Amino acid sequence: MRPTGGGGSEAQAKDLCLRLLTDRARSRAELAERLVQKDYSADVIDRVLDRLTEVGLVNDADFALQWVHSRHTYSGKGKRALAMELRRKGIGQEDAAEALAQIDGEDERQRASELVAKKLRTMSVDDRDRAVRRLISMLARRGFPQGVAFEVVKEQLDRAGADTDDMFEEL
């Protein structure tokens, strides 16, 4: 959907973008989408976003790096979920791949292990099958690979004292 152009002046569009950027960093596509919603013309949108990019206030590569670090560290997201989030934010494939490269397999495994350990503190492991399903599902929803999820859940349940050897042989 392209804007029709009744939204306002270039200065007003710039002010809107600056207000949005004070809340948190945003991708160029996110800002463009908001300007389209406010019915700014395509020409105004392009000029404002080009100027903000030129002065360094909008940088999709930096945004992607910051987003991946923050969401992996504080929200416990795996690479698959982060890749989807970046795509929804309008980040290009190259910038997304570079940002996701900062998370290696060991980082992802460690974060998954922390999440499972935290969840185990508040759940019962009396029904092992149910506990395994719930924990693996939690990790899958957060975008962790299935192999990592199985390994981490088995390891954490072993630490918690639940016997899981027979359960994982069936899988």
Rank of each mutant, 00 (worst) to 15 (best):
W67V: 07
V68C: 04
V68L: 03
S70H: 04
H72W: 05
H72A: 03
T73D: 05
Y74V: 10
G76M: 07
K77A: 11
K79S: 10
R80A: 07
A81E: 04
A81N: 04
L82V: 09
L82Y: 03
M84D: 15
R87A: 13
R87E: 15
R87L: 10
R88V: 09
G90E: 12
I91K: 00
I91T: 06
I91E: 04
G92A: 08
G92K: 02
Q93V: 15
Q93T: 15
D95M: 08
A96I: 00
A96F: 02
A97W: 08
E98H: 10
A99L: 01
A101F: 08
Q102P: 01
Q102L: 08
Q102A: 04
I103Y: 04
I103D: 01
G105C: 07
E106F: 07
D107G: 04
E108Q: 14
R109P: 01
A112E: 08
A112V: 09
S113D: 02
E114N: 00
E114W: 09
A117I: 00
K118S: 14
K118P: 04
K119Y: 04
R121G: 06
T122W: 03
T122D: 14
T122Y: 10
M123V: 15
S124I: 02
S124E: 11
V125I: 08
D126E: 13
D126Q: 14
R128M: 09
V132T: 11
R133A: 13
R134A: 14
R134K: 13
R134C: 11
R134G: 07
L135D: 04
I136Y: 03
I136R: 15
